[in-house]
Design a binder for these strands. Structure first.
Lengths: 245, 245
DNA sequence: CGCATTGTTGACAAAGTTCAATTTGCGTGG
DNA sequence: CCACGCAAATTGAACTTTGTCAACAATGCG
């Protein structure tokens, strides 16, 4: 299947299941798992995926914009994106990463229609599946487990936000930064020869931790002096995460 | 129906709908509306309420404890409670009020079982309906709209938490306190002759806003000097909420 | 009236932010 | 291949905001 075929719209009902199965399974990387699809029969999964449109988007693009009417449900297939919240003064507040298998835009499943409550931005080139709201609503009514999964995802999301709130309001800048490093290592890091590596600028780390870039710079240098990590421009090598907390 | 009858356990299937209807509608104040019951047929509502046990709890009791295995779904019928999160250092972080009609303990609806992610404490004497996890799960599978509602509630909760995060991390102590006053007025205030009145101590307001009681005291006095509010021990009369933000 | 709870005030300390001035690293084009 | 230029990162010092603590005042209940 060519790249073109992969990206073409494949909305519509299930036409001869087998064919759709080939078409849709094809777009998912091997070993792909998503909480949204958990516990759904393969027939239903095929029907669900068949109704999606696949789209590839370049880095820094905004996939959903806080306040816009929720028109699409998304599922990240590949790449990296993040949830952000915009504060009244215009600054951006990092909430969490979106990794392959994560769904977002769940607000599209609500009736009556609601606005998105967060902004989602791609950090690298990403590949997503997307469903029109109406189409998604129809599918949810046919596949009850989808609603259960959506509830579980929303609940999990709320739990993480509550945890984030505790960290952001109760802990020192140093602790928050340490936590951001450990989580980044866990979620987007690759095992390197010296430790876990990930590509983030000081400024991005600072934004994630809710700290000024200056504080981030100072603290990261302190840790570098202690041999806990090594940093070059735009990249961190975490050598001893256990010594951070 | 005597008070004793009201409080007795009424679990079990629907026995001759009409009888149950009388028993359960009886425990709900007139005009009672809950997001959890939205859009559910009256037959289903009766069955659902019939499976609940009603309980009355005195002020300051903890209804669900963060970290405990989620064993019950709750619906607040009367009174006032609040969600709290416990920080690692043991201090308590106020999240939001729970008003009559609000459901909590939704974690009980998840499979596999999960711990509660927040603590819920009564602020006055409260009356709740509660469902055993197993019973609630059975009802959700019979009444699909319950799942939809649970999802909507969880989504709303996540949205509020995200908003709270923005306020707590991005705004000044003064702004946060002002916001707490306005929200308290809206949610638990009563119209008085001089303005909107509500019963909260300085310390409670401080906790809600994430501010030290000293800062709260100073700021409240400043506002009192400006005639925006009047305060006595444990009580606030908000006279000009519009002048706060 | 006595007592516990609640609230007040001032002086001080701590944590981070801001800003300006530089320095470093790295890709690009001559 | 080197110099240029830009974005990223660093550093010090002043400044702001808010919390901490100790002492004290007031409120209201039994």
């Amino acid at each position: 299947v060519s790249n073109e075929d992969k990206q073409k719209k494949i909305v519509g009902g299930v036409r001869r299941g087998q064919a759709m199965s080939a078409a849709t399974c094809d777009v998912l990387p091997p070993g792909f798992r998503s909480r949204l699809l958990e516990g759904i029969t393969s027939a239903h999964t095929r029907a669900f995926l068949a109704a999606a449109k696949q789209q590839t988007t370049s880095a820094n693009q905004v996939l959903q914009h806080e306040g816009d009417q929720a028109s699409h449900l998304f599922l990240l297939v590949a790449g990296l994106a993040a949830f952000y919240k915009t504060s009244p003064d215009g600054s951006r507040l990092f909430l969490r990463w979106i990794l392959p298998g994560d769904a977002f835009g769940l607000a599209a499943l609500l009736t009556p229609p609601r606005p998105y409550r967060t902004t989602v931005q791609a950090l690298r080139e990403v590949s997503v599946l997307m469903w029109e709201r109406d189409s998604a609503l129809g599918l949810v009514s046919q596949i009850p487990q989808l609603c259960t999964n959506a509830f579980a995802i929303a609940g999990d999301y709320a739990g993480r936000l509550a945890d984030l709130l505790v960290v952001r309001t109760g802990q020192t800048a140093q602790y928050r930064l340490a936590r951001v490093l450990v989580e980044s290592a866990h979620q987007i890091g690759k095992r390197g020869c010296e430790g876990i590596e990930f590509v983030l600028t000081n400024e991005q780390l600072a934004e994630m931790a809710g700290v000024s870039p200056f504080t981030a710079s100072r603290q990261l240098n302190e840790w570098q002096r202690q041999g806990i990590l090594r940093k070059s421009r735009g990249k961190i090598v975490l050598r001893a995460p256990e010594r951070l907390v």
